[in-house]
């Protein structure tokens, strides 16, 4: 042994620049009626995301910790949590950005907590299909060998909104959703617009009742935090504003024009 004291001596172990304290919100419904905090010291490595810290806790320190994760590359949308008060994808939020710590990890805000860092996403899952986030076609199914043509410019209209990964960080950031749980919410409206603005889609009228209702776009007061929280730069706040203009224009047309001319 040449470097007896060196913590870095373990072969194949990346640089460790000490440790960082993770304060993790715990909620065990069988034992407690409200959440409490547990503290863990985890290695502070420059390539470690908050999720790596949680995995270290689960594997090495406390196997009872519950949380959701899957892809570790910011595409599955399942590891959203509140990190130091902000909604984040924990797989792409790095511990070194919070050094020297402590870093506080809580479940996503605005959702009921099932256990520890796991929230109940049923509300969002129930709302999402109400805006029909798929291509609605008035015609019969196209023949096997036919295809829908679309120009790059037509695709640009909706591409930004198509980047949504349903991670629900926007719901967690939205004070309107916190205050009015019936609000259909940022991601659902952005996804509705993703299809409304698609040249191949004919579902505008179908989505209108939900989108243009009091619990649709009109509930939004444009706090704008959904677009700040979005890890995919979808800009739900912009999508909602745009639809407000569309819905208002449509309402004026309904009022002024006879049915046939709309």
């Amino acid at each position: 042994m040449s470097e007896t004291d060196d913590k870095h001596a373990v072969p194949d172990m990346p640089d460790t620049t000490g440790t960082i304290t993770m304060e993790v919100a715990r909620f065990r419904p069988d034992r407690e009626s409200e959440p409490s905090w547990d503290s863990y010291d985890v290695p502070l490595r420059k390539e470690w995301a908050v999720l790596d810290g949680l995995n270290h806790i689960k594997d090495q320190l406390d196997g009872t910790l519950s949380y959701r994760w899957s892809c570790r590359m910011g595409i599955c949308g399942s590891c959203g949590m509140t990190v130091n008060g902000e909604p984040k994808l924990t797989c792409s939020t790095f511990l070194t950005d919070y050094a020297p710590g402590p870093v506080r990890v809580e479940p996503l805000a605005n959702f009921p907590v099932i256990r520890d860092l796991v929230v109940d996403i049923e509300d969002f899952m129930a709302k999402l299909p109400t805006v029909k986030p798929w291509l609605v076609s008035g015609d019969e199914e196209p023949a096997e060998d036919s295809e829908y043509r679309q120009t790059p410019a037509e695709m640009d209209d909706y591409r930004r909104y198509s980047m949504c990964i349903n991670c629900m960080l926007c719901y967690s950031a939205c004070p309107v959703y916190a205050l009015d749980p019936d609000f259909i919410g940022p991601a659902a409206i952005a996804l509705a617009q993703r299809y409304n603005l698609d040249s191949r889609d004919e579902g505008n009228e179908d989505r209108r009742d939900v989108l243009a209702s009091a619990e649709g776009v009109w509930a939004c007061t444009f706090v704008g935090e959904c677009s700040v929280a979005c890890p995919k730069d979808v800009d739900p706040a912009g999508a909602i504003q745009r639809y407000k203009l569309t819905a208002a224009t449509q309402a004026v047309k309904d009022l002024l024009l006879p049915r046939g001319a709309r």
Partner: peptide, 9 residues
Amino acid sequence: ADRRYHHPV
């Protein structure tokens, strides 16, 4: 019984 925890606003 709802055993979920609801954060008060």
